[in-house]
């Protein structure tokens, strides 16, 4: 209850701060010799606000405040899928996307791999992780090895769990499709950045009869995963997955803060729409335009 009250106060305070920004409008022009890029003031305010909110919620989580996080069916299904693979004596296939490690989606994928590897290590289920870039090979091997070590299953770990298959997108796809058809994994988990290969992978996995769980922040690939997979994580659910699977309050606090900002953005959109409907939204628009 106290958290809800504090959230409401925080929300209203943030909204008021944003409303103050409307009048007067900030100077759009950049001062030639200045140190700061004044045209990016709105972005700076947003960054500070965003960080403050996330940190506040993380602190509350650390203090042991109860935070409600909605159920994400796709993530609840991960453990179930690994269990099914264990029963069938078949492997779990995990693909951390096909982008490089500098992509935040890939980092999210590798983080989830760490969580999944803990479950496969616990059940001693075989895990196959094909990757497209050597940098992810190194990161993936480190993450999986650590997971097996933490679960006390160091002996079950081998370096070939995470394997480099091909750098070219479709050569990678062809190789993974081959693994799906030959090894018939009981579960295929796709977490990260996917492109044109999304349907080629998911449809092959479907034909092989595997349970399929996908997660990506690429809106253009979501329809393909929705059509061919059993569960699909959309957009921010991918970034939330690692925290969700960890059940660590510290990580869940970040998710709650993120939701708070989302509500704030919805409010800003609503305010903007109302102001424009009454023909007085120009100053409001300038704040966000100047932030580019």
């Amino acid at each position: 209850m106290k958290v809800r009250l504090l959230s409401t106060i925080f929300f209203l305070a943030s909204l008021t701060a944003m409303a103050f920004l409307v009048f007067p409008a900030p100077a759009a022009a950049q001062i030639e010799g200045g140190i700061f890029r004044t045209e990016r003031t709105a972005v700076l305010i947003f960054v500070i606000l965003f960080s403050a909110v996330i940190l506040t919620y993380t602190r509350w989580a650390k203090q042991g405040k109860k935070l409600f996080i909605r159920k994400i069916a796709g993530l609840d299904a991960v453990e179930e899928a690994v269990g099914r693979a264990t029963e069938m004596g078949k492997p779990v296939l995990f693909i951390p996307g096909i982008s490089e490690i500098d992509e935040i989606e890939t980092i999210a994928g590798v983080s989830i791999l760490g969580r999944v590897a803990r479950i496969t290590a616990q059940y001693e289920t075989p895990l196959i992780v094909p990757v497209r870039y050597p940098m992810i090979l190194a990161a993936g091997q480190e993450v999986v090895e650590q997971a097996y070590t933490e679960m006390g299953k160091k002996d079950a770990y081998n370096q070939d769990i995470v394997r480099y298959v091909a750098g070219e997108q479709f050569a990678f796809t062809a190789t993974v499709n081959g693994i799906m058809m030959r090894d018939k994994p009981a579960a295929n988990i796709y977490m990260g950045a996917f492109f044109a290969e999304s349907l080629l992978l998911a449809e092959t996995g479907n034909a092989a009869g595997s349970i399929q769980i996908a997660g990506t922040a690429r809106p253009e690939q979501l329809p393909f995963f929705v059509a061919a997979c059993d569960y699909t994580l959309m957009g921010e659910e991918l970034y939330a997955a690692s925290s969700y699977l960890s059940h660590e309050p510290l990580l869940l606090g970040g998710l709650k803060g993120q939701d708070f900002i989302k509500v704030l953005i919805v409010a800003v959109i609503a305010v903007g729409s109302i102001l424009f409907s009454f023909g007085v939204g120009e100053n409001f628009k300038q704040i966000f335009g100047a932030g580019q």
Binding site: F50, I54, I104, E105, I107, A108, A217, P219, G235, E236, E237, L238, Y239, A240, G254, L255, G257, Q258, I261, K262, I265
Partner: peptide, 8 residues
Amino acid sequence: AALGAASM
């Protein structure tokens, strides 16, 4: 997704 990425 952008908020999720920023938060992460």
